[in-house]
Design a protein around this nucleic acid. Sequence first.
DNA 1: GTGAAAGCGCTAACAA
DNA 2: TTGTTAGCGCTTTCAC
Lengths: 345, 345
Amino acid sequence: MAEEPPLARAARLADVAELAGVSPATASRVLNGGHRGVREANRQRVLDAAKQLGYTANLAAQTVARGRGRGVTLLASGMPDDYANPVTAGVVAAAQRRGLPFTLISAGTEPADLVEAVNMARGNRPELLMLAGGRMADDATIPDLVDALQRYEDEGGRVVLITQKGLPFDTVAYANRQGGRDMAATLVELGYRDFAVISGLKHGLTQRERTEGFIDGLAAAGITLPADRVLIGQFDRDAAYALTGELLRRPIEVDAIFAVNDAMALGVLTFLRDRGETAPRIAVAGFDDIKALRDVTPALTTVHLPWESAADEALRMGLGPRSPEPQVSVIEGHVVVRESTPPLR
Amino acid sequence: MAEEPPLARAARLADVAELAGVSPATASRVLNGGHRGVREANRQRVLDAAKQLGYTANLAAQTVARGRGRGVTLLASGMPDDYANPVTAGVVAAAQRRGLPFTLISAGTEPADLVEAVNMARGNRPELLMLAGGRMADDATIPDLVDALQRYEDEGGRVVLITQKGLPFDTVAYANRQGGRDMAATLVELGYRDFAVISGLKHGLTQRERTEGFIDGLAAAGITLPADRVLIGQFDRDAAYALTGELLRRPIEVDAIFAVNDAMALGVLTFLRDRGETAPRIAVAGFDDIKALRDVTPALTTVHLPWESAADEALRMGLGPRSPEPQVSVIEGHVVVRESTPPLR
DNA sequence: GTGAAAGCGCTAACAA
DNA sequence: TTGTTAGCGCTTTCAC
């Protein structure tokens, strides 16, 4: 039985310095500071001492001393859902590639939660604060949000928005309207004529743009989509499932359904399957091209979005020099046709 | 044009105190410290001042002053994959429920990465450090890992392992062996006789236990599984896809395949579908019951694991008083029979 | 190249 | 109830 060390304390920089026989300043220089001038001999002793003591820099102390923490904090609204949030995955990967400490803060779903989460994130003083997630067009908390973020930038932090177009910060946005339009053109070309759209909450910007783009695209092909063909619910699979049922109960012809995201498309697909394949098979298209759906049958026609490069772009923006005007980088997707929308006839 | 404030600084506690006309100590008491005795009048003034200044506590400074940070840090090895890591999701949710700041650190896939990540996490001095992810039985870095974690506990931090059974720390483990055994019993009962197992890396503890449990279960039913019926590859979908092809190329009878996790089962399912449904349909079973697969066809028979409550249990352990001996909490799953394993005949 | 010393923003004894 | 005073561990001028 070894003596139980009753209450060890973490080794501090001072301990390392002492053991190495140098000053804290020197130890700091070799352990953290840019590899400036420290004589090789001392350098080695410090390194040895650090290893021997199992020294780990106290990041909090560094943050205090330096005035700003290292790393990226991603604020994602809502919980990580089952269809792995591709944005989060992309950012984690991108941050990892650059060796940046990554912190995920997930805010609740209420708009006010976001503001609160931003303030909490501010507390950590990360060098880059990224916000991801949809936003409501009529959100009353936007001024507060902008205010909090603005404050953060004024304090020297950086802010990058992903998906949150229209706010005065560097932004990576997806070409939602364009994608919707392209999808419409594609489906028309495949021979479909009677459409319905399964969309999310009325005021959500993302779904709204995708829906509008789709309608535009149909219009360009000479097709008018009656307003009652756009069904609205939550932005998720279950809502889509329910909405599809509602849609098919109506006495109308539908040969293709466009869901504004893949999760919802999955709901549609599942509903269609559950009710049994009746003769007139209905085509389904989504938006996002999330990987978790690649094994679904039938394979889903959707708008592919390059998540990884989008995340990379966001980091590039946020880590680069700050530009006087907010930059907006629009990421374009492209339609991928798969089995869920077979050519008609 | 408003004057550009050239270089604002974040409001500090001292600023708030000054504006409120009280001492920093008092301000600290109302803003952070337990709601102790502060005269209501002062209390209000501090609150007002804070709001007016847009004050956010500098968490790093608090951590330094208090000697320990608040919140939970989850160290997940590997990247968040497409089949949303259920452990991560569970912990995020559980932490959120308790209002605990949550940080996710994702380590690389090499064992050595884990150790490094632990040291990095130590730097943040979180009150609770959780490790999730599989572990190799023959991992040479285990002593280093244990050492780093031990150190952390000695310094006053808490460590909880999820899934990493067998290390001297509080642990939440899954009843892998049991689940495998139950699955075997279930399949036999359904009438299956000729089995194959698609498993992951030979030295992975999780997959090994599940495989052994399955074999035990078969044995208990009087069935011996030839060693060559256990195919081994990576712990993921793609490997399973390839292994299934390899398996079916052999001149043997197989009427059911047990994959050691759902992601792999998905690979099996997809391969089976891709090659076209030939007459003798092969049953498939998985393990985990991840939600992302709930819409797969045929619905997957699998071992359900209660992720949410497991995460809750982990937090409960880690946040509660430290017990002299490491606690191990075993979470049991149960077999859920779905369409992928129809009763034979 | 190296060290002394002054902070960074906050908390917590201890007095008052 | 409130303020004073030391720190917490680290970085960073600024001399030497």
